[in-house]
């Protein structure tokens, strides 16, 4: 059982106004709570209290719908609690060359690191619950209005644990993560695959502006803007390759439900971020699903 410091001491402005609140909380936890020093380093004390399943009044929380809850149970898992990780990150500056295509590596790295920080904090919360994995992960980016170049990265999901005690952790010993819904999770498990990890790749790319001479050369011509096409291709390829490499690191067989998001955030129309995200999967048993029968609903979803 974790011994908790007074809530008032956590809310003490002097204590909490430091640049590194997680580090500060960690030190406070270390002083007040008899837990392993290296464990749950990044989890605030409030979160540790919420996650303490031994406290006697523990009630699981989840953002699963009723259908999802029932299907997760049917798949042999139980929800343990809603877990979350966040990172408020200052995105650095990089000067782009006006007339050149180039990857903005400082920005790519910032977007990746911040998401990774949020994800790893969420994983630590799940770890504290002794979860096998996290399903329904939502990874969001919000740009703060109160600070320039600041963005808040949030990862939220529901930690689950196998009811039969089988471990479904990754080869790195972390809980698996997945953005699949409860329904998709059930179907995936029944097809004989299991989620390994939410994998992602990011690339922030500056697309060249056209010079006056180039514009004059194009007057009266129907032609492809190869420089734009190449920029788009390269940005997308880099994002997808990075996502695939993450999955390969975890010895996954494939990635399902891949989504490619394209956004300019606050960098103007010539700087775009390609963000590829999907769930890496691995086969662990033969499919247990019966042959589907063709059902054609009579209601029109368009109405």
């Amino acid at each position: 059982m974790l011994g908790m410091p007074e809530i008032s001491s956590l809310r003490n402005p002097e204590e909490c106004s430091a640049k590194w609140p997680y580090g500060r909380v960690k030190r406070m936890v270390k002083e007040a709570v008899p837990i392993d020093e290296n464990q749950y380093q990044d989890i605030p004390q409030d979160a540790l209290e919420r996650l303490n399943r031994e406290s006697g009044h523990y009630v699981f929380t989840s953002d699963l719908t009723v259908n999802e809850f029932v299907l997760v149970d049917e798949a042999g898992f139980e929800p343990l609690g809603m877990v979350m990780g966040s990172s408020i990150y200052h995105i650095g500056f990089q000067q782009s060359a006006w007339s050149k295509n180039q990857e903005m590596t400082v920005l790519s790295q910032a977007m990746y690191n911040a998401r990774e920080l949020a994800m790893s904090r969420m994983e630590e919360e799940a770890d504290a619950l002794k979860a096998d994995g996290i399903i329904g992960v939502r990874l969001e980016v919000k740009h703060a209005e109160w600070g320039q170049h600041l963005a808040e990265f949030i990862a939220i999901g529901t930690a689950v644990r196998s009811k039969d005690g089988t471990s479904h952790r990754t080869i790195k010993g972390k809980p698996f993560t997945s953005d699949l819904s409860g329904q998709d999770f059930w179907t995936l498990m029944k097809t004989g695959y299991r989620p390994v990890s939410l994998v992602m790749g990011s690339c922030v790319y500056h697309i060249a502006h056209q010079g006056m001479l180039q514009m004059l050369r194009q007057v009266g011509q129907n032609q492809e803007m190869t420089i734009y096409t190449q920029g788009l291709y390269d940005a997308r390829e880099l994002a997808m390759e990075r996502m695939q490499l993450e999955a390969a690191d975890l010895q996954a067989e494939g990635i399902v439900g891949v989504n490619l998001h394209e956004s300019s955030h606050q960098w103007g129309s010539h700087v775009i971020e390609f963000f590829a995200v999907g769930t890496a999967v691995k086969r662990f048993q033969e499919s247990q699903l019966a042959t589907p029968s063709l059902v054609l609903p009579l209601n029109d979803p368009g109405q």
């Binding site: 998709d184 695939q244 494939g254 990635i255 439900g257």
Partner: peptide, 11 residues
Amino acid sequence: ELPWMSTLDIA
């Protein structure tokens, strides 16, 4: 050499 990937959802 790399895992396959797909835009298809689970169903």
